[in-house]
Amino acid sequence: MDKKLEPILHALQEKFGGTLEEFRDEAHVFVKAEHIVEALTFLRDKHDFELLSAMTAVDYWPQAQLPFGESPRFHLVYQLTSLAHNLSVQLRVQVSGSRPEVPTASGVYAVANWREREAWDMFGIRFTGHPDLRRILMPLDTEGHPLRKDFPLGYEEPQFTFNFDEIQLRKPFAQD
């Protein structure tokens, strides 16, 4: 890991009580959902992380179904880049599966507007205070959120001569 990153990580841990994970020279800092906007603002203004390179989510269903009701089913991932210092840091936020809500970061980085719409569309994570939280990629009449692990991938059963009729009967067709 880059030496220049260490003071920034210390500051993040002190200010926001973040826990640090490291893997292959990458630093991942876990912060609480209520601190995320503050943490992003802090990194942008104090440490020149001008670019929110990527933002996405990961669904840990069903492993994350802990005995507690508020299990952190999702992780939100914020990948930040500092052009001035050539550094990268990743912030992660744990989001509960029963009430997936996180404050919006679109006030800090304008790009978060579309990225959060995508996370809402694909994972059903709500961003409070978002100016325009609509579906972005899926059609408006989609039911569910496709990148959740409990959303089936869906496939068509191959039909052969010996089982053609049997499958034909249970095959889903578009209704009019």
Binding site: F23, R24, H28, S53, V58, V77, S88, Q90
Partner: peptide, 15 residues
């Protein structure tokens, strides 16, 4: 574990 890796595509950062 998770990683993030990016290259410079003709359109920009492809991560």
């Amino acid at each position: 574990a998770s990683i993030y890796s990016a290259v410079e595509s003709p359109r920009g950062e492809l991560g």
